[in-house]
């Protein structure tokens, strides 16, 4: 069953065409690596998926219902998006990790937070660390934890391991693979050739705002 479907989707901004006539069906539990040169529209593609922007033309449907029929806030909770640049806000790591609970009017679940720290092999002491004192790689992992606080149906990742060393990259890849095995659909933009074919079952290549190819890997 398709979970996300793009039909004749184009997107332009201030007269500049960024994505042209995309047609793609993403099946539930797909693990798709998205590759392509800079400026080929990869990030725009992800933003369209979680309705941070709307297509200029064409339709996007989620679970066979047009995205525009969903409440955008609820939709974004199901289709979670982790940005290329990890943007942490507030003062401390805790401000960031408690945010997903606050916006759902839920009590902060410390067990869940601690579980994620162990999953990422990170020291729990980071919880009270000031955001300003974190390295690029630490920020990237905290941002990803924030996105994964509530397991989404679809996970959109934009070069989320770009600042990580090989050891931590491996940890993150395994976490994402595990989530995919447990039922989340994954769309992962990457510049790393090895990473792009490691776990993914499909490889989507974008070029000049168009789909160049969609290969089935597994």
């Amino acid at each position: 069953m398709s979970i996300l479907e793009f039909s004749n989707v184009s997107f332009s901004n201030e007269g500049k065409s960024i994505l042209k006539n995309l047609n793609i069906r993403i099946e539930s539990r797909d693990y798709i690596s998205i590759v392509g040169p800079s400026g080929s529209g990869k990030s725009t593609f992800l933003k369209l998926c979680n309705n941070l922007i709307s297509p200029s033309e064409g339709n996007i449907s989620f679970n066979n219902k047009n995205v525009s029929e969903y409440n955008p806030i609820e939709l974004r909770k199901e289709i979670a998006y982790c940005f290329q640049m990890p943007h942490l806000f507030g003062d401390t790591v805790m401000d960031n990790l408690s945010f997903p609970f606050k916006i759902r009017n839920k009590k902060v679940d410390m067990d869940r937070i601690k579980y994620l720290f162990s999953l990422f092999s990170m020291d729990e002491e980071f919880i009270d660390e000031k955001v300003l004192n974190l390295s690029g790689g630490e920020k990237q992992r905290i941002a990803l934890m924030r996105t994964l606080m509530f397991t989404p149906e679809v996970l959109l990742l934009d070069e989320v391991t770009s600042a990580l060393d090989s050891e931590n990259t491996l940890i993150v890849e395994n976490i994402i693979n595990k989530l995919n095995n447990e039922g989340s659909t994954v769309l992962w933009v990457t510049h790393n050739d090895e990473q792009s074919i490691k776990y993914a079952n499909k490889l989507l290549t974008l070029e000049n705002g168009e789909i160049k190819s969609l290969e089935v890997l597994k």
């Binding site: 941070l52 806030i73 609820e74 974004r76 909770k77 979670a80 940005f83 640049m85 806000f89 916006i103």
Partner: peptide, 12 residues
């Protein structure tokens, strides 16, 4: 970016 990050997390 900060605002978009929060929106992307599903915040109103």
């Amino acid at each position: 970016e900060e605002v978009e990050t929060k929106l992307a997390l599903g915040a109103d």
